[in-house]
Design a protein around this nucleic acid. Structure first.
Lengths: 106, 106
DNA sequence: TGACAATATGGTAAAATAGCCAAGTGAGGA
DNA sequence: TCCTCACTTGGCTATTTTACCATATTGTCA
């Protein structure tokens, strides 16, 4: 791998890294369809305001979500809907894993 | 989010986390189509043998790849091909990001 | 059997990440 | 204008991740 190729994979990995956290994954799914303000997400997740805010900025920096101010509130929405495909695939991986674990126990 | 839902997202995030590293992403793409032995992957990546081996075990533990021994070599192959979709989507995110950066510079 | 080749594993130091508290910002209402 | 609400940012510590080196392990071949 030369430097250029390496960079290519780094950049891609960063997108995945941004998604690879339970709360952020939850947010992304929650933002599919409708946009939500930080306070709504915070309530659903239950973490500190600052924690939720930082997670959102990670997603924003990765280019996955976008934000708009509406008065005193900030609304986030999903920018690239295809990230939802990750769920479908992750689900497949997990199902397969479960199936194999069952097989071992039989 | 109750404990059960939290667990659900944790498990999914773990699949993504396994993919969220440049070398591992490279391997997954490289393993699409044909299987490769550790030494081949090591040569392509250029890291230490132990490093490559550990990356592979991360992918294996996540259920993304599988391995078979052939004599003294270990061949890895992709178990769940849909992970390749990640690339397509990550690509879209990146393209969009680039397009926006260009807009800002104009 | 002994030695070597291909991997895996344990240990460890450095870097990155997560989540809390406290302090800062900015819009809207009293 | 001052206060408050909805966030964001900075600072800090605990945890996780990464990648190397050294040390097993395991199969092959002489």
């Amino acid at each position: 791998m030369d430097a250029k190729q390496k960079k290519r994979y780094e950049v891609r990995a960063n997108v995945l890294k941004a998604l690879a956290h339970p709360s952020r994954l939850f947010m992304v799914e929650e933002l599919s369809g409708k946009s939500r303000c930080v306070c709504e997400l915070r309530e659903m997740i239950g973490d500190d305001f600052s924690t939720v805010s930082k997670h959102l900025s990670v997603l924003k920096n990765a280019g996955i979500v976008q934000d708009t101010k509406q008065g005193t509130q900030v609304y986030y929405s999903l920018k690239i809907p295809c990230v939802l495909n990750f769920f479908t695939c992750a689900e497949k991986v997990l199902k397969q894993n479960l199936a194999e674990q069952k097989k071992i126990l039989e």
